[in-house]
Each structure stands twice: as C-alpha cells, then as structure tokens.
Computed example of a mutant assay.
Amino acid sequence: MGLEKFKETISDTRKARILAAERYKKKENFYHFINIYYAVFLVVLSIINLNIEDPTGQLAQTLLIFSILAFTFSIVIYSLNLKEKYFNFKNNYIALSKLYSEIENIDNSKVAEYQLEKIKKEYNILLETCENHDELDYYNYIYFQKREKYNKKNEFKKIIIKSKIYLNIVNVISIKIILIILPWLIGYLLFYIKDSLEGLVNLF
C-alpha cells in the first residue's frame, strides 16, 4: 500500500470511528433519558396508586408489570457497556489522529520507508485493540462527509448503501418512539383487555 493510499485509509478509519463513538454516545444519552423517564412514570403511578381506590387491582397490576419492565430494561442497557464502547472508540480515533499527523511528516527518503512500516504496525495494533466500527458508520461517512468516494461506487452499490442508511434511520426513530410510548401502551392494554374480557364474561 502506497503512502497516499495508506494516509487515506487511516483518515477513513478515523472518521468512521468518530461516527461510531458519536453513535454510542447518543445511544447512552437516550437510554439514560429513558431510564429517568420510566422512573418518573413509576413514581407518578405509585403516588396515584396510594391516593385512589383500586378495587379491580388494575392499577396495581400495571405498576407491577411496568416495574419489572423498567428493571429488566435497566439491566439490559447496563450490560451493553455503551459508555465503555464510546471511550474505546474515542481513544482509538485520537490515537489514529496522532498516526495521521506522523505520516504527514514523512518524506521520500530511506528513513521514511522505515517510519512508514513502523506506523503500519501501530495502525494494525490500533485495529486489534478496539472493536471494529459498524458497516453503517463507514457508509454514513462516505455518504454524508466524503461524497466523492460514494460517487465512485457503481449504481447498485449506491442503492444498497443509501437503503441501509435510511432504513437504519427509520429503525432508530421507531425504537425511540416505541420506548417512549411503551408505558402508556402497557397501561392502556391492561385496562382495555381486562374490561373487554369482563364484558365478554357478562354476556354469558
């Protein structure tokens, strides 16, 4: 791999990992918000449960089910290690920035060949010490930030890249909406289903 090509490889990897770090940071911030949101919802539900009569036990059931859901959600989010992944990618792209600065100072001398091999080894070590960024991180980079690289792809590949990017955007937005409306949906379903079942029982 030539000097200019290797410089481009380092730059592309660095930019993709910046996007990966930002993605994990946004995920962590959103899930932190959801944890707080669910906690507030539980507190409000508990206060309501203490201050009104609940002869059917529907409110207590909703409170119990949602408490289990919120607890499970917090365990799942904790197990994802989002903050750790964010810092791993951040440290990695900072190290790649230093490598890029080093390679920019290389000239065409014999010493430069030795320096280039040394930097390549360091680059490979950095790749091994951090999980790889997602394919979508790279696609987002070339589509939104390095359009000339995207434009060099054949038309079929362009369609694939564009489809994956926008499907991911729709997927992320959908998950956020579901997590926000979930407590209200659970409450509604519990009340609606129970009332419907009681109505069917009364018919017989």
Rank of each mutant, 00 (worst) to 15 (best):
T9P: 00
T9V: 12
T9G: 00
I10V: 12
D12L: 10
T13N: 07
K15P: 00
I18G: 04
A20T: 14
A20L: 02
A21I: 03
A21S: 11
R23W: 12
K26M: 07
E28D: 13
N29H: 11
Y31H: 14
I34M: 03
N35S: 12
A39N: 08
V40G: 02
V40T: 13
F41K: 06
F41A: 13
L42R: 06
L42C: 00
V44W: 03
V44E: 04
L45D: 12
I47S: 02
N49A: 15
E53K: 10
G57E: 09
Q58N: 13
A60R: 14
Q61E: 13
L64Q: 08
I65P: 00
I65G: 00
F66N: 08
S67M: 07
A70C: 01
A70M: 06
F71N: 01
F71H: 00
F71E: 00
F71D: 03
F73Q: 07
F73C: 02
S74R: 05
V76N: 08
V76F: 09
I77T: 07
I77N: 09
S79E: 07
L80N: 05
L80K: 05
L80S: 10
N81D: 13
L82D: 09
E84F: 03
K85R: 10
K85W: 01
K85A: 03
F87L: 10
K90M: 09
K90A: 07
N91S: 10
Y93L: 03
L96Q: 10
S97F: 04
S101L: 09
I103V: 15
E104I: 11
E104C: 08
D107R: 09
N108D: 13
S109V: 01
K110H: 06
K110Q: 15
K110E: 15
